[in-house]
């Protein structure tokens, strides 16, 4: 039975800290061996998940959604009204996108997303999250000094732009719809999608037309 007892868990963590090998590769290998022996995991299913997120599920999905929003006003309205329903049109629903909120950048508003308490991220739309998104520096600082953090990403915003920081504290997940770059009027949705970076959909990049 699960104890739900924090003090018991603190004691277990102390034992694990002193008794497990230090090398994470050895720790994970031992855990997987034990789980396989006990019939709790099938290694082929682990392989299938890794292949899926290496090949099919990644930021290209989010880029297609953004490019469609740029080229189809009715879709953009739907995306902003109900993100989860909108991405279902692409069959992109899945992990952590059951309550997707799209927030739009404009000339006067810049959105940026964080999870200060852990690492919440819209996985089925953007794939695995980058290391910096899970790191203490970003989680601690972007809610307090967003302009300084964005500058480290090369994003310089004028004082007239309001920064909105979205802290993913619930099961809602946020997708930033970046601004369409200047000079892309002739491009179709596929060409536009190629311009959309992962970071722009987190809010830590501004997009440019390809030179």
């Amino acid at each position: 039975m699960t104890s739900y007892d924090p003090q018991k868990i603190i004691d277990i963590h102390a034992h694990l800290h002193s008794d497990l090998p230090s090398d994470p590769a050895l720790r994970v290998k031992a855990l997987e061996s034990l789980l396989v022996e006990q019939g709790l995991v099938d290694p082929a299913a682990i392989d299938a998940w890794i292949d899926l997120y290496a090949e099919e599920i990644g930021p290209k999905r989010g880029a297609h959604v953004v490019a469609r929003a740029w080229t189809d006003p009715a879709f953009k309205a739907k995306l902003l009204a109900d993100g989860t329903a909108a991405i279902r049109e692409f069959d992109y629903q899945g992990h952590a996108t059951g309550h997707l909120i799209a927030v739009e950048n404009t000339d006067t508003v810049h959105n940026v997303v964080v999870c200060t308490l852990c690492s919440c991220y819209p996985f089925s739309l953007l794939g695995m999250s980058p290391g910096w998104y899970k790191a203490a520096e970003y989680r601690a600082r972007v809610v307090r000094e967003p302009r300084a953090v964005l500058k480290e990403f090369g994003v310089a915003l004028g004082e007239e732009v309001e920064i909105r920081v979205w802290d993913s504290t619930s099961e809602l997940r946020y997708l930033v719809v970046p601004q369409r770059p200047e000079g892309t009027d002739g491009l179709d949705a596929a060409a536009l999608a190629a311009l959309v970076t992962r970071n722009s959909m987190i809010g830590t990049d501004l997009l440019k037309a390809r030179a």
């Binding site: 590769a25 994970v28 855990l31 789980l35 682990i46 299938a48 998940w49 890794i50 290496a54």
Partner: peptide, 17 residues
Amino acid sequence: PFHADWEARMWGINEAM
């Protein structure tokens, strides 16, 4: 998405177990 095999295995365990 992953920078070491063990990271990928651990994430996959989390999904599949």
